[in-house]
Structures are given as C-alpha cells and as structure tokens.
Design a protein around this nucleic acid. Structure first.
Length: 960
RNA sequence: GGGCGGUUAGCUCAGUUGGUUAGAGCGCCUGCCUUACAAGCAGGAUGUCGGGGGUUCGAGUCCCUCACUGCCCACCA
C-alpha cells in the first residue's frame, strides 16, 4: 500500500478530477426533507437545522470574474463548514435571464448578420435568445463547477423557468389586485440605444464639462407683436427648447416680476408660451429664468403639472427630433443641439455661452446618455412594501432584528434608501423577459390583468384584446427568488384551469436538467427563510432590497407548517446579509476592461490552483474592507498548499515504513478529535491542545464571517505549529529499527496521523481540492465517506485544553529559538553540533529535563548541560525563566553583540520606566482593574531582571 | 449638497467592548541543497499607528478639528 504522491504539488493534476467527481456523485444535493411524524422521531434522529443559502444568480451572459469568485468562495466556505458541522446545508444555484444584457448580446449577433430584431419579429427573436442561452448560457456555471462550489446542482434554476415565471405572474397579479400596481405617463429614464425605460438605479452619473447657453426669448407686447424686450433663460440642453411650454421665474424675483402675465415667443418655433411664477426656481442660478420642458425633464414635468402646462414630446424613442421639432425633425439630439445653437446665434438670440460642469446620466448597461422621457410605464406603489422591509431590519418588539447586516454599516445605507424610496418602474420595452400579464381592450380601452391568458376583456367582454408588449424589469423576477425557488405560489394557490401546465420548465425545453419543482410546501417549510445572503453592495438596492420587500410581502401570507400565521421574522427572505468587499487589483484600482487590469480567475486558478486562490481571497476577506488582490499572496498560498502536500508525503513515508514492521494506525483513531494519554510525550499533548485551540478559534471566526482570521489561524497552526515544530519533534519518536519501542512508535504515529487528518478536515472548507486528494490517499481507497466534505468539522471542544503542555512547550521553543540565534551570532557553522549550558528556573526544570532531546535535535546541541550558573565568559542569551550559552571556541562579533545588548537595554529601560511610572500613579492603582495591575507588576519585575541580565552581559563583553 | 468609510512596517492588510513591550503575509538582509518540502529551513532588520488638540490612571482604539483619499445617495435648468 505505497502512497505515491508526486514530489511537488501540482493542482492541475488533481482539481479537474475532484470537481467532476463532486458533481457526478451529487454529493451536495439536498433533497426535500421528509416530514417525520413525531411518533417516529426517535427512529429518525432529528436532522440538523437547515442552512440555506441562495447563490446570487449570475447573468446568463456572464463570465466569471474575481467578484464572483470571492462571493462563491465565501459562500462555499460557510456552506462546507456548516455542512460538516452537522447542518442540513443547501446551496442553491441558478442564473438570471438578465433582460437588457442578454437582449443586447443577441442583438449584436444579429447586427453582425446584417439583420435586426425588428426584422426578425418578436417571436422569432425570443426563440433566438433561447437558442443563444442553450449554447452559451451555461458557461458561468461550468466555471463555477470547476471552482468546486458545493451547490446542489439538481436544483439549478433559470429565472425564466416556467415555475419561476408562474411566480412572477402571480406576484404581479396579486400586487395589481392589491392596488399596488399602476400604469401612467411619467418622466422616466430612457435609454435611446436600448429603447427602453430603465429604473433610477440603472442610471450612472458622470461629470462632464459642458456649457450653459443663455437664450433670449422675445417678450410679446400688448399688441401681439414682439415688444423688443427679452427674457433670457439659461439651459444646458438647448435642443429641448423645441418642447418648451413656459418660462418660470421666482415669485419674488424683482428683475422679472414686471413680465408676469406676459407671453414669450419661443424662438425657432414661434409658439406663444406663458411666464409662470414658481418658488422652485432658484434666483442665483443662471439667469434666474428657467425654460420649462415638461416632456423632457423631471423637474419641469412636476412644474408643468402644477401649472397645467401641456407636455410636448419632441423626440422619438431613439432620441431623434420628431415631427414636433419642425425643421429639425429627424436630427439626432446632439446634431439638433448644434444646429439650434447656430440658428439662435444667427438670429442674435444667443446671449452667451458659459462653461458648466454637469452630471450626465448614462445607461448602466450600454453607457448611452440617458434621455428623460415622458412615457407610459408600469409602476409598483412601493411604500407599503418598504414599510415592512424597514421594520425587518429594525429591532422588533423582542429587541431582535429579523434581518441582520454584516458589516453593520450597510444597515444604515439600506434604511436610508428604503426610507426615501420612489415608486418602482417595472416595465421595460424589451422582448426578452417576463411579459406583463395585462391585456388592452380595443373596445373599451380598459386593461385586464389575469393569472391565465384571457380571451375576452374582463370589463366589456370584447374579444379585441391584445397583450401588453412590455416585459418586467429583471429584478422583479430575481426579487422573488427566495420564495419562488421553494415552490411559491403553487402550493397554496388553487390550481387555475388553463394555467401553464406545471411542471414544464425551460430546462425541459432546453433538455439540460431536470429540476424538481416542489408541488407541496415541504421545501418551503424546511428552507424558508434562508439563512444567509452573501453578496456585494453594488446590488444592495437592485436585488437585496427588492427581495426583502417582495419576500416579506408574499411569504407573510404563507402559513407556518403547523398552520399558524407567519411572523415578520419568519417572512423575511433571509436572516442574515453578509456584504462582501470589492475585489480590486494590487494597486487598489477597480478592475475594469477599459483599464485592462482585470484578473481572470480561471487563468489564475490554472496557474496557482483553485485552493491557493480561494485561500488568498479568504485570508483577505476582512468584512468591510476592499480586497486588493495581490498575486504575491496567491504565490504564498500555493506554497502553503505545497507544504500540506509535503507534510502528507512525510506522513505516508512513515506510515509505509511502519507498516513494514507491522505497525499500523487503528482507523478508529481517525475522523474525530484526536485524544492523547496524560502520560503521552509532551509534543503529542501539545499538538493536540493546539489543534483544539485552533478548532475553537476557527469556529468562532467563521461564526462572525471572519474568513481572514479563520484562514490565518489555520495557516499558523498547520505551518507554524504542526510542520515547523511538531513534525520535527515527532521524528524523534518514529523509530522503526528492530530494537524500537513499538508501542511508543505506534502511539506517535497515531497522534501524527490523527492530528493531520483532523487538520485536513479543518482546512477542507478553505482548500477543498488538496484536502480531498490527500484525505482519500490517507484512507488508501477505503474512505469512511464519499468525500472529506461529508465528514465532521473539528468542533469547539467543551473539555479544557491542556494549557500545561502549551506552557512547557512554549518555554522549550523559546530555549531552542534563543540557542539558534546565539549559534548564528557566535558564528557556529550551520552543520556543527555544539554543547550548550542551560540555567532554568525550578518550576520548569523537570519538564525540560525530560525533553532535552528536543532541544538537542532542534537546536543542534551535542549536549545540554543543566547548570546553576552559566560559566562566565560564554556567549549567552538571557530570558526571564532561563539563560542559555553555547560552548564554542570561536568568538562572537563583539561590536554587533554590544549593539544588540545596547538596544535591548534601551528597550528594557523604556519598558521599565513606563511600568514604574504607571505603578507609581495612585490614580492607576486605584482605578485600573486588578488583573491589569498584577500583569504590570509582573512585567515590571521581569523587565527589571532582564535589564540586569542584559547590563551584566554587556559588562562581561571583552573590550574591543 | 447629504451620508458612510479609509489613512498602522517597503507593499497588501489585521488589531473585537480603551489595558501590560502594536501583529501577519509578501518583500528585504544573512546563512544553509538538514534524509516531507529550495514553492524549503534557520536567523535578522523595519513603525513619532495621517497632523493637531481633548477626555482618561491609561488612547492605534473614544471625542473635536484639519489634511488627504475612496464609495454611496441626491441632481438647479
């Protein structure tokens, strides 16, 4: 049974294999829990509490980027950890149909083919998008599989699956029934390229250097002719003047008040427009007179409503001037601007042009400048939903919050937004998405909203009805995911005749997967509310907030399993939200395609291994701080993986050698927390104590989303304690000679293997690949489970830790470190062994005397002479509880030694002075807690001793 | 304009309710191919915790202020 591991760790050789294995074996599938009757509860031991987590669905068009990988690494660590800790873990994956993004992608293809979606027609186009999805849509999830995400692939969903579409439709209809959906003409953000409305959130603002044009509008005299007087308005967008229906001035602006009641002649157009008074106008901006274009500016729209002004829309959906624009018709908005400015100048109506910096909104998707546009859209009256969403994050009557944010600061951001929320424009003029289930009647003009496609108008019975062409905002469907993925609404909705046959999923259409839709509430009962949402702050409002609003709104009507009403705390879509940081490049720059600093996770994974990249992200994932992804760290963690690899090789080498003389490790010692006898060797007691301490710290860190702490603690344990110290010491015990004490060797081997095996389990959530590989090798083909991921995570022990062993070991380590340093200073050759003198305090004397061989081996001492006093003249190092000296003929570097001692003395003097000052302070003695005072006193006496020793050593140095 | 962060070793970052002499990784310097690992081992150097003020027996940690810096929200034409 030789364990043949290649000498160097090569992630590429193992990772693909395990990634495929995990998927193929369905290791992380979480079936719908069977409802066990109480009478049988003893037969079926109660399963762990569910740990449910939804993958923020990546866009189906997406390619995996570093942000995804961070997000998935964090979720995977937590899910694996919870699963190994006995929870019923469900991590649910899926993709988002991503309306605009996907439509754009396919439109681009069509452009290359020399056609357009309009030429194709709606139905063919949508079919074309499905086809695209079938071909390319799985890419990001394949990448995810490669990264080893421990999700339940059997439950994979797509937001346009039929069951999820049913949920979308139900949600829309219910909100409509509840009077929370309305349709109307409002100014919305319009993207002239995408030719759709977009929500406020989808507009990103950018500062641009532009101009403020001052235009003279002729005042019409009592005779109906131009009076010769002008009112000068200032505008950043002269082209919109074609749609002006008034000019507004401040009611107390004495410069212009005499003009009130008069009319102006709109230049270039000739229309007579009124001068209105409104306090909204700011007197000190521009000229103090504002042209009012209600159809092209949100403020003007409000102004227009207040003053009953007509709305004149002068642009079409592509932002070209329409027939209202007279001779400018057909011109692009910016061409029209140029032309208009030139014409005004020619007419002598351009009073001035000033430089002006203004913020311009761009479409988040395609970066086209957004046009505020008057159009008819669908909205959700959001306040009632927001109220509940606010209550969910504020302390309830029991003082607890239904939803807790980590880091806490995001709670404020969230509340601030939620408290100032505007109605949500949910209609999009796209073809790809959930089509709004509303039908317009050509006969009576009314709208029919229905769960089932109607054949006649519900108002007048007319058959002349046509479905609304708009689709819903993508976030409307993703906002429903926490309820819809668990079967809402079908389980509590009477099956409507004629409703889409269910289950029929897009996956069936596509022929990829066979998701198992829930037809009862077992899934919902077991997994809702989900435990945690891990996501980036960039979609806090888009998605997180919408899920909270919609989740509460619809889940509150779903009774508990026992029929009782559902509380707010049980209606929320998730109990915790963990907002992770942004991954930046090594220079803290945001990664972006234009900057060319994007790190492709798959590339870097190929180079360093998934485990190393995961560990990098985990070790830097301190809550609330952006991650400056530094490849040097990844190199370091690849070295760590290599270290683990080689520790395994060392282990296997010894296991094999032991087997040759009939020593084997009892498999029952593995798979749990190792134990040691009280009389076991010190290093065995110590490493087991360290393991327990490490497990406790790691569990606590993960409990608090301190991935960074957890990773560093494990790293320190494995490399620092286990490899650097324990492995070196245990070599002393691994004696395979004929004369060896077999019982001792076996005990040492057992501790070695069992601690290592436990360490693998500890590491597994962070580095699933390498631990899986080594774990399987360790069991040599007979593992107790299909995967290390299904074994138990080292728990936090309830029994006390062997602090005595820790203390003793710490002293021995200190002796060894000091001796090594001393050897170096004294110029002892690396290979040479040399006797040392050691003076030790009584209380540690026994244990150290029993473990002299550790010092001999690790400090390269040919002999350790325990003395009462170090022989004068020997180069020595002093510590509080011991002094150590090397017996060596070569002299030390006296100036360097003097230098070192002088520095030490200065440090001790400073420390001592500080301690004495505090201890001499009555206020300190009176007010500081006892343990602090005690600690300081101890420190003072120690420092005093060290200072004396250092001074003595300095005095003893030969004069240069 | 409103709000929220950040500023700690050359670099990237920890430092939990104020408490003993501020840490890690990488990098750097020195010596070692020591039979698991040179992707390694051993030793070493490095900080007026952004500036100033205050509270306190005690401040990297709390308060004020200034500077620099990042982000979010709002959008006066």
């Amino acid at each position: 049974m030789p364990h043949d591991l290649p000498k160097a760790y090569d992630p590429t050789a193992i990772e693909d294999h395990w990634a495929e294995y995990w998927v193929r074996e369905n290791l992380f599938a979480q079936p719908t829990p069977e409802q066990v009757p109480a009478s049988e509860a003893s037969v079926h031991p109660p399963a762990g509490q569910p740990f449910t987590i939804l993958l923020p669905p990546p866009n189906v068009t997406g390619r995996l980027h570093m942000g995804h990988m961070l997000n998935q690494t964090e979720m995977d660590i937590l899910t694996r950890w919870r699963r190994m800790s006995g929870r019923r873990a469900l991590w649910l994956p899926g993709t988002d149909h991503a309306g605009i993004a996907t439509q754009m992608m396919v439109e681009r293809q069509l452009t290359e083919e020399g056609t357009t979606r309009q030429q194709l027609g709606r139905e063919a186009f949508v079919e074309r998008v499905w086809e695209w999805k079938r071909h390319y849509g799985g890419a990001i999830l394949s990448q995810m599989k490669r990264l080893g995400a421990s999700v339940d692939w059997q439950r994979e969903y797509f937001t346009m699956d039929d069951n999820l579409s049913v949920a979308v439709r139900e949600a829309f209809v219910r909100l409509h029934e509840q009077g929370l959906i309305y349709r109307g003409a409002y100014i919305v953000n319009w993207c002239p390229r995408c030719q759709t409305a977009i929500s406020d959130l989808e507009v990103v603002y950018d500062e641009h250097k532009g101009h403020l044009w001052e235009i003279r509008y002729p005042v019409i005299g009592p005779d109906g002719k131009d009076s010769g007087e002008f009112l000068t308005v200032a505008t950043t967008r002269p082209e919109t003047m074609l749609g002006d229906t008034a000019v507004a001035i401040h009611p107390e602006d004495e410069r212009y008040l005499h003009l009130h009641g008069k009319k102006l002649r709109l230049p270039l157009v000739g229309r007579e427009i009124p001068i209105i008074l409104d306090a909204w106008v700011s007197r000190d901006f521009g000229t103090g007179a504002v042209k009012v274009t209600p159809a092209h500016d949100p403020n003007d729209f409000e102004l227009g409503k207040r003053h009953n002004l007509p709305n004149i829309n002068v642009m079409d959906e592509t932002a070209h001037i329409n027939s209202e624009g007279g001779k400018y018709q057909g011109l692009d908005r910016y061409v029209a601007r140029k032309r208009i400015v030139a014409d005004l100048e020619e007419l002598g109506l351009l009073a001035g042009v000033k430089d002006h910096t203004n913020n311009i909104g761009h479409c988040d998707r395609c970066k086209t400048v957004v046009e505020p546009r008057l159009s008819t859209q669908w909205f959700v009256k959001i306040k009632p939903l927001a109220e509940k969403a606010i209550a969910a994050v504020k302390p309830g009557p029991d003082g607890k919050k239904a939803i807790r944010f980590t880091p806490e600061q995001y709670e404020k951001t969230y509340l601030n937004w939620m408290e100032n929320i505007y109605d949500w424009c949910i209609s999009r003029q796209l073809w790809w998405g959930h089509r709004i289930p509303a039908w317009h009647c050509a006969t009576c003009g009314k709208i029919t909203v229905a769960r089932v496609d109607p054949t006649v108008c519900s108002h007048c019975g007319s058959e002349k009805i046509t479905q609304e062409t708009d689709v819903l905002d993508t976030w409307f469907s993703s906002g429903l995911l926490p309820v819809s993925v668990f079967g809402w609404p079908n389980f509590n909705q009477p099956q409507t005749p004629g409703a889409p046959s269910f289950p029929r999923t897009s996956a069936e259409r596509v022929g990829e997967h066979d998701p198992q839709p829930s037809e009862n509430r077992a899934d919902f009962n077991a997994f809702y509310p989900t435990s945690l949402l891990v996501t980036g702050f960039d979609i806090l409002f888009y998605w997180v907030a919408r899920m909270i609003m919609l989740g509460i709104w619809f889940a509150q009507d779903v009774p508990e399993a026992d029929g009782s009403p559902r509380s707010l705390a049980r209606s929320v879509p998730f109990k915790e939200v963990y907002i992770h940081a942004l991954v930046r490049d090594a220079n803290r720059e945001k990664m972006s395609k234009t900057k060319g600093n994007v790190i492709d996770p798959i590339e870097i994974v190929k180079q360093y291994g998934t485990d190393a990249v995961r560990f990098t992200l985990a070790s830097m994932a301190s809550p609330g701080t952006d991650i400056a992804f530094n490849i040097a760290r990844t190199e370091g963690y690849r070295a760590f993986a290599n270290k683990i690899w080689n520790a395994a090789r060392f282990l296997f080498m010894n296991v094999d050698r032991a087997a040759e003389i009939g020593i084997t490790v009892d498999p029952s010692a593995l798979g749990k927390m190792p134990t040691v006898a009280d009389d076991a060797p010190l290093e065995a007691r110590w490493i087991v104590a360290e393991l327990y301490a490490t497990a406790a710290k790691v569990n606590e860190a993960l409990e608090n989303y301190r991935y960074d702490d957890a990773a560093n603690i494990i790293y320190q344990f494995f490399w620092g304690s286990f490899c650097d110290w324990y492995l070196e010491i245990v070599k002393l015990r691994l004696d395979f000679s004929e004369t060896a004490d077999k019982a001792q060797t076996k005990a040492a081997l057992t501790t070695l293997v069992s601690v290592f095996e436990a360490a693998l389990r500890l590491l597994s959530p962070f580095m699933p690949f390498i631990t899986e590989e080594i774990w399987h090798a360790l069991y040599d083909g007979n593992p107790p489970a299909k995967s290390i991921a299904l074994t138990e995570f080292p728990p936090t022990a309830t029994t006390p830790i062997d602090t005595e062993a820790q203390r003793a070991m710490s002293t021995i380590q200190s002796i060894i470190v000091e001796t090594r340093a001393l050897r170096k200073e004294t110029g002892v050759e690396e290979k040479a062994v040399t006797p040392i003198e050691l003076r030790i305090d009584a209380e540690v004397k026994t244990v150290i005397e029993q473990n002299l061989q550790m010092i001999e081996r690790l400090a390269k001492a040919s002999e350790v002479r325990i003395v009462d006093q170090i022989t004068p003249g020997l180069p020595l190092r002093t510590k509080f509880s011991f002094d150590v000296a090397v017996i060596y003929e070569r002299t030390i570097d006296i100036p360097a030694e003097r230098d070192r001692l002088t520095k030490d003395i200065a440090k001790y003097e400073k420390g001592l002075a500080s301690a004495e000052r505090q201890l001499g302070n009555q206020g300190f003695l009176a007010k500081a807690p006892a343990n602090i005072v005690e600690g300081l006193k101890k420190q003072e006496s120690e420092t005093r001793l060290l200072l004396e020793k250092a001074r003595a050593a300095l005095d003893a140095l030969p004069q240069a």
